[in-house]
Lab assay of single mutants.
Amino acid sequence: HFTSQQLQELEATFQRNRYPDMSTREEIAVWTNLTEARVRVWFKNRRAKWR
């Protein structure tokens, strides 16, 4: 589960860029205190939901 702060950060990034690269995902991981893998999976799932 994600905190509302984490989701806000993830959503804001998603609005700007639906396909963040590795370095962007790592930055998000640092800001949100999540692993890069969790961030990558979140984006994958979010893109699926967005379609």
Results as ranks from 00 to 15, higher is better:
28 I>N: 00
38 R>H: 11
43 F>I: 01
27 E>N: 10
49 K>I: 14
2 F>H: 03
28 I>Y: 02
10 L>G: 00
6 Q>T: 06
32 T>D: 01
45 N>H: 14
37 A>N: 09
22 M>P: 06
34 L>C: 06
35 T>K: 03
26 E>P: 03
36 E>L: 05
4 S>K: 14
17 N>F: 06
11 E>D: 03
45 N>A: 13
8 Q>C: 14
3 T>I: 04
13 T>K: 09
49 K>F: 09
42 W>R: 00
14 F>T: 02
30 V>N: 12
33 N>I: 04
18 R>K: 14
28 I>P: 00
6 Q>K: 04
16 R>M: 09
10 L>D: 00
29 A>G: 06
24 T>N: 06
2 F>M: 10
17 N>M: 08
15 Q>G: 07
29 A>T: 01
38 R>G: 08
3 T>R: 04
28 I>K: 01
47 R>M: 05
7 L>H: 07
9 E>C: 15
19 Y>D: 05
46 R>E: 06
40 R>C: 06
13 T>N: 14
37 A>L: 14
7 L>K: 07
9 E>I: 15
24 T>H: 08
23 S>T: 12
37 A>I: 13
27 E>V: 09
34 L>E: 01
50 W>F: 09
37 A>D: 11
6 Q>G: 01
44 K>F: 08
10 L>E: 00
24 T>M: 13
35 T>Y: 02
46 R>L: 01
30 V>C: 11
5 Q>D: 10
15 Q>C: 10
42 W>K: 00
48 A>G: 06
8 Q>R: 13
51 R>D: 08
8 Q>K: 13
37 A>H: 11
12 A>E: 11
27 E>P: 01
20 P>R: 01
9 E>G: 08
21 D>S: 10
4 S>H: 13
30 V>G: 11
2 F>Q: 03
18 R>Q: 13
36 E>Y: 02
31 W>D: 09
10 L>W: 04
32 T>E: 02
17 N>Q: 06
14 F>L: 01
31 W>G: 09
47 R>V: 06
41 V>Q: 14
41 V>H: 11
39 V>F: 03
27 E>F: 11
20 P>F: 03
36 E>F: 05
21 D>F: 03
1 H>E: 12
41 V>M: 14
5 Q>C: 12
44 K>H: 09
35 T>I: 04
1 H>I: 11
46 R>H: 04
13 T>Q: 15
29 A>D: 02
44 K>G: 05
24 T>P: 01
4 S>G: 08
17 N>E: 06
15 Q>V: 08
13 T>H: 15
46 R>Q: 06
24 T>K: 08
30 V>E: 13
18 R>M: 14
51 R>Q: 10
44 K>E: 12
15 Q>T: 09
46 R>M: 06
42 W>G: 00
51 R>C: 11
41 V>R: 15
2 F>Y: 12
34 L>V: 07
42 W>N: 00
2 F>A: 03
47 R>C: 02
43 F>Q: 00
36 E>W: 03
15 Q>H: 10
6 Q>H: 04
14 F>I: 01
2 F>K: 03
38 R>P: 01
29 A>F: 02
